[in-house]
Amino acid sequence: MAEQVALSRTQVCGILREELFQGDAFHQSDTHIFIIMGASGDLAKKKIYPTIWWLFRDGLLPENTFIVGYARSRLTVADIRKQSEPFFKATPEEKLKLEDFFARNSYVAGQYDDAASYQRLNSHMNALHLGSQANRLFYLALPPTVYEAVTKNIHESCMSQIGWNRIIVEKPFGRDLQSSDRLSNHISSLFREDQIYRIDHYLGKEMVQNLMVLRFANRIFGPIWNRDNIACVILTFKEPFGTEGRGGYFDEFGIIRDVMQNHLLQMLCLVAMEKPASTNSDDVRDEKVKVLKCISEVQANNVVLGQYVGNPDGEGEATKGYLDDPTVPRGSTTATFAAVVLYVENERWDGVPFILRCGKALNERKAEVRLQFHDVAGDIFHQQCKRNELVIRVQPNEAVYTKMMTKKPGMFFNPEESELDLTYGNRYKNVKLPDAYERLILDVFCGSQMHFVRSDELREAWRIFTPLLHQIELEKPKPIPYIYGSRGPTEADELMKRVGFQYEGTYKWVNP
């Protein structure tokens, strides 16, 4: 592979701008107003304001973009700056750019259920340069409990009458099928589907988006991507930290609602779906819905739930269990780990287990898709061969690698495990991989909904998990304890083995 010439960040961002501006969906010269509902909250200060700053800094926003914060707290732009700027990672050389960014910011205080507050917000936006005809993007960085009041008031008082209007809704989209349907029906009564952007930030990850290209742009994968060759698929999300004093919020939802029903299920769809007619948003989402419709409700015998306990040999936070978090209700049975087996009941995947695993306070930070292939028929190497695996590593250190057998150097035919490896950090030294939120917010500006969740996708996802969630809430089974920093409950490994996964433990990928 030829040595790549190092590029400056300015040059890299210039390439990104060229890609972005050559499309006809990006209205570079139009006025846009980006409204952050819930501007005083954690999500706004840690993710949304920093993301908008990065896009502005790199010249990736339309030229005439204004940012308006809205929340109940009586704040000023200076207050917003004070709480969000520490997350910007701005350099001293960017000081003038930073001043320009905050000059485009404003803030309006108001209630979430008060019509007069929204009329005041609308008047404020109209007073901005060309504000009355601007395109408006409303980001709901809010708890779902206020979605209905907020969307109703936005629709009645704050819509642009000339430009387009788009609304970005953060997960969780309800707690179960019934609450999700209620919320979807409410929002759909106010906005068209092409105006609604239900954001799952995992769909903005580079390697998640790469799944489609790997599958449908490489001839070698087509013939082997089926039940005849693939023994099982494992989708993993692991965090090495616990709730760390923020367990009160987590306890309301648990690990299945927080990660599995959305992030992991979306990745499953991209692995299992048929080739779409095109890369058009609805063509892709149509195929994802077909996959979900082929999955039956989760069966309790295919589920393992766990909850982390303190590690007596650990240090600091590792010595504390979930129930030691003062914000967690006493005696909570909320799971911090889950392993679930699903089956896609169609011709391509009949009988292939899709194993979804996620948890907190585990032994490493990792998100990946792992396809394990069947054993080689007619073994001539005296059971020395391990199964081939194709691994798409989402985070950290984005990579695609194939675990395969090669001859060990020497005189004899002794096979050993090795890999074919594409590590993004080595291959793409001159490429700026956008943060997931950067990519998705740019998608909203461009009107691309491919990486957002459609209402029928959402409904099918909740259909699969709601009976299990209701059973857990009714019966309150005690989750299996696992030690902070471990791989999780051993019962999860036993479940995976029972459905056909072979864990060798003899080879570990190392970032080159």
Rank of each mutant, 00 (worst) to 15 (best):
N185P: 02
Q178L: 14
L55C: 11
D58C: 12
K46N: 03
R166T: 00
S188D: 07
E99W: 04
V108K: 06
I187N: 02
D79L: 07
E193S: 07
S106R: 12
A6S: 15
A25W: 15
Q161C: 09
I220Y: 07
I36E: 01
G248W: 01
I167F: 14
I187P: 04
H129V: 14
K205G: 03
M159L: 14
G254C: 04
D113C: 13
Q133W: 09
V68Y: 05
L96H: 15
R120E: 10
R136T: 06
L235N: 01
R9G: 11
S117N: 15
D79E: 15
P144V: 02
V150Y: 04
S132W: 13
N185D: 11
F237D: 04
S180L: 06
G110N: 08
L121S: 00
E99D: 15
L130R: 13
V213E: 03
S84L: 11
L190A: 10
F173M: 08
V233I: 11
D200H: 02
S8G: 08
T76E: 09
H186L: 07
I187K: 01
I52H: 06
L203S: 01
F250R: 04
E63Q: 12
E170S: 02
N218V: 04
E63R: 14
F102V: 06
F216C: 00
H129S: 10
C13W: 08
E170I: 02
F250Y: 15
L60Q: 08
A134E: 15
S132A: 11
F221P: 03
V68L: 08
I224T: 12
P144S: 07
F34V: 11
N64S: 11
Y112K: 00
T145P: 09
Y49F: 08
V146M: 11
G38F: 03
S180H: 06
S84H: 10
H32I: 09
L61A: 01
F102Q: 06
G204Q: 01
E252I: 10
I255R: 01
D114M: 11
A6D: 15
R219N: 08
F191D: 03
G245D: 07
N64Y: 07
T151M: 07
G254W: 00
C13A: 11
R219K: 09
Y107K: 01
N229T: 07
E94F: 05
P86E: 11
H32S: 10
S184R: 02
I230W: 00
F101H: 00
S189Q: 14
F88H: 02
S84R: 03
S84Q: 11
A109P: 13
G38I: 01
L75P: 05
H124L: 08
R246M: 02
R57C: 07
A6V: 15
P50S: 09
R120T: 13
Y118H: 09
T51G: 05
D58I: 09
D251Q: 05
A141T: 06
H27A: 12
Q83S: 15
M207R: 08
K97Y: 07
Y70K: 03
G38C: 03
P172Y: 04
G248M: 06
S157L: 11
L137R: 02
F21Y: 10
E206P: 08
R17T: 07
G245F: 09
K152M: 14
G248I: 00
C13G: 09
G131M: 09
D113M: 11
E193Y: 01
A103H: 15
L55A: 13
D30I: 11
A134F: 09
K47L: 06
E85V: 13
S117M: 11
R215A: 02
Y139P: 05
P143S: 07
L214N: 00
R246C: 04
Q195K: 06
N135D: 08
G23H: 15
D113R: 10
A109I: 11
Q119P: 09
N105V: 11
A116Q: 14
C232Y: 05
G23L: 12
R136C: 12
L130I: 14
V233S: 02
Y202S: 01
G248P: 02
L128C: 08
D79M: 10
L96D: 13
K82S: 11
F237C: 13
R74L: 13
V169C: 06
I67F: 13
N229A: 09
P223F: 04
L20F: 09
W53I: 01
A217G: 09
P172C: 04
P143T: 04
R227W: 05
A78G: 14
T151R: 00
T151I: 11
I255W: 02
S188Y: 05
I256F: 06
P223K: 09
G41S: 00
S189K: 10
H27R: 15
Q119K: 13
T51P: 00
H186F: 12
D251I: 01
P62A: 08
T31E: 12
N153D: 08
A109C: 13
I196M: 07
